[in-house]
């Protein structure tokens, strides 16, 4: 690891004005330290933001606000979340390990970087790590890679589970810019597709901070599920994951939400399938149709053709689980 200076942020204005390109914020450090150890991030200075950002979960009329420093495990224990937004807890519990969830912050979770194996190996070309060097995965080992929304320059997938649930629930990210002004970015616009600039994962402005995450009030708390298919049952990233949520009246679907991880460079919403489910009876036939609708657009790579079948199966399972769990 390259030597670096370490400071504890004292005040927001000072922190923001002192932030340089070679400075990096550190929250839980569960991703950043690994990136530093592997020489992927090489900051000159780390600014510890843990005591400067909110670690509160606050309910208000329009929804709930999760401070950027709320630990991932805190989200899974919060009574309000468990009652009204259980999908968030389900998704977080499907990821990482208890130790990591205890350290990881909500803000950091949104900014964790892809798990593409080449990204983590500095001896291989990778456009995301080193723009212009090429993409090793596009014609290499791409079993874990994207099946939709990718470019020739990068086929990596977004790794978070939490973010899939946030995408499904139409969350928004409140950011504090370097001029100390807050602005809100809808969740669907927060993460980017790779295009020709895969080095940029998100639309978070340079030197800005994540302040909090807003989740609007919804009626999905009774019927929601998170399915994560992975190579082992704990402590593994998703091959394919699905966050599903249904707002039911009797057995009729008023609204449906479907989002996936492990398929694209950002949490992916299956809008067409959601639209299809609206007004339908909640049953296996419709679930199957919705799943097929989502899967029809995907374009797998050489080694991940299975993801199409898996996606379909996972969507059906998740929708089914909405009715039972």
């Amino acid at each position: 690891m390259k030597p670096f200076a370490f400071t504890k942020a004292e005040s927001l204005p000072k922190t923001l004005s002192a932030k340089k390109e070679t400075t990096q914020f550190i929250a839980g450090g569960t991703n950043l330290l690994d990136l530093m150890k592997k020489h992927i991030s090489q900051p000159d200075e780390l600014v510890d933001i843990t005591s400067m950002l909110s670690d509160k979960i606050e309910a208000h009329k329009k929804g709930i606000r999760i401070g950027a420093m709320v630990r991932n495990s805190t989200v899974t224990l919060d009574a309000n979340i468990l009652t009204n937004y259980p999908l968030l807890a389900k998704a977080i519990l499907a990821g990482a390990s208890p130790q990591i969830r205890n350290m990881a912050s909500a803000g950091g979770n949104l900014l964790q970087r892809t798990r593409c194996p080449y990204f983590y190996d500095i001896t291989t070309p990778c456009n995301k790590r080193q723009p212009g060097s090429g993409c090793s995965a596009v014609e290499g080992e791409n079993r874990m890679s994207a099946i939709i929304g990718y470019s020739e320059q990068c086929v990596a997938v977004h790794p978070s589970d939490f973010c899939i649930a946030l995408a499904a629930l139409d969350a928004a990210v409140v950011v504090t810019q370097s001029n100390q002004k807050n602005s809100t970015i809808p969740f669907s616009d927060f993460h980017r597709l790779p295009g020709s600039t895969p080095q940029q994962d998100t639309n978070l402005p340079a030197n800005a901070l994540i302040h909090s995450i807003e989740i609007p009030v919804n009626d999905f708390h009774k019927n929601c599920a998170y399915v994560k298919v992975r190579d082992r049952d704990s402590y593994a990233f998703a091959l394919v994951s699905v966050a599903a949520a249904l707002d039911l009246k009797g057995n009729t679907i008023q609204e449906a939400r479907l989002a996936s991880g492990g398929v694209a460079h950002k949490p992916w919403r299956w809008y067409e399938a959601e639209q299809y489910l609206k007004g339908k009876e909640a049953n296996a036939v419709h679930f199957k149709e919705a799943a097929a609708m989502a899967a029809k657009d995907v374009k797998p790579l050489a080694h991940n053709g299975f993801k199409k079948l898996m996606l379909q199966g996972a969507i059906e399972t998740a929708l089914q689980n909405c009715l039972t769990t």
Binding site: R115, P117, Y118, Y120, D121, T123, T124, S136, E139, G140, E141, D231, R232, D233, S234, Y235, A236, F237
Partner: peptide, 17 residues
Amino acid sequence: RVGGLIGNDFAGYHFAV
């Protein structure tokens, strides 16, 4: 193509838990 291992860490290599 790379001529070596990839995913040679515990995020890339899974053993049973």
